[in-house]
């Protein structure tokens, strides 16, 4: 059942300013599976995707995607590698000055020299896959949040990538849109054999579709495995995150000076 590894991240250290975001993160992402990377907000999950995509370079450590060391690639090789990657951004990131159709056609026009009627067929096919063939002439400003993400999804699969990364696909979506996205992600994975990486903090949705998950907190991987394994995980921190308990290893209170110094009361109730 052990499938080959598509992305491997080894001992990656990354800091932004004085803040160390990753302090030795190691994880493997299997080929053709859906892997969810979860963790509380602000743990740098999006940063991890940017590291995989080569938009950021780690301070130390190694990131290998499809057999290539991303952070060592030349600009040209990196851009060629990115043609095999699709990324769905949190906001959708559609080009606001292009129509839905042109947005999906954009990667095709840039990277292929297909004739116009072929581009049209492919674009309509991709839009059909996300159920928005009828919305081809709308401008991004006319789309709802869920539709924006579906169009962005159609755009990221336009070139039939091997890898697709989803950055918080469920954030801020209504239940129906969320259901649609869950279905799309699952269908795309099974029908196209895509390797999918899903970054999210929506535990139930993520665990419901992923084959494999890992949880990042405080710059480290604190737990990984199949959804079943994670639910049985011994670590308190993992359990707190999965069950959404307000207090636990991650304290409810932000570190603050002693109550006495702030209010100037010394044991008034005692």
């Amino acid at each position: 059942m052990e499938s080959s590894t598509y992305i491997s991240v080894r001992d990656v250290v990354f800091s932004r300013g004085n803040r160390r975001i990753f302090d030795g993160v190691t994880l493997d992402i299997p080929k053709g599976k859906i892997t969810a990377i979860m963790g509380p907000s602000g743990t740098g999950k999006t940063t991890l995707l940017k590291l995989i995509g080569g938009q950021l370079r780690p301070a130390s450590g190694e990131i290998v995607v499809a057999g290539e060391r991303v952070h060592k690639l030349s600009r040209k090789a990196l851009y060629r590698l990115r043609e095999k990657m699709g990324m769905l951004f949190q906001s959708g990131a559609l080009f606001t000055d292009l129509s839905t159709f042109e947005n999906v056609a954009f990667p095709l026009r840039v990277h292929t020299s297909l004739p116009e009627d072929m581009i049209r067929d492919i674009v309509l096919m991709k839009l059909e896959a996300v159920g928005l063939r009828g919305a081809r002439d709308l401008m991004p400003s006319e789309l709802s949040g869920g539709m924006t993400r579906r169009v962005a999804l159609a755009r990221s699969i336009a070139l039939d990538p091997e890898l697709i990364m989803y950055d918080e696909p469920f954030a801020g979506q209504d239940p129906i849109a969320m259901g649609v996205l869950v279905k799309l992600i699952r269908d795309l994975n099974s029908s196209m054999g895509l390797t999918s990486v899903l970054v999210s903090h929506d535990v139930p949705e993520s665990l419901s579709i992923c084959h494999y998950a890992c949880i990042i907190a405080d710059g480290k991987v604190i737990g990984q495995g199949t959804p079943e394994e994670l639910r049985q995980h011994p670590s308190d921190q993992v359990q707190q995150f999965l069950q959404g308990q307000p207090d636990g290893p991650v304290p409810f209170h932000y570190p603050a000076p002693d109550a006495v110094t702030d209010w100037g009361v010394t044991g008034a109730g005692q």
Partner: peptide
């Protein structure tokens, strides 16, 4: 709106 990033990710 991450349009520049997404462009970069599209090569």
């Amino acid at each position: 709106t991450e349009q520049l990033s997404s462009m970069e990710m599209m090569g």
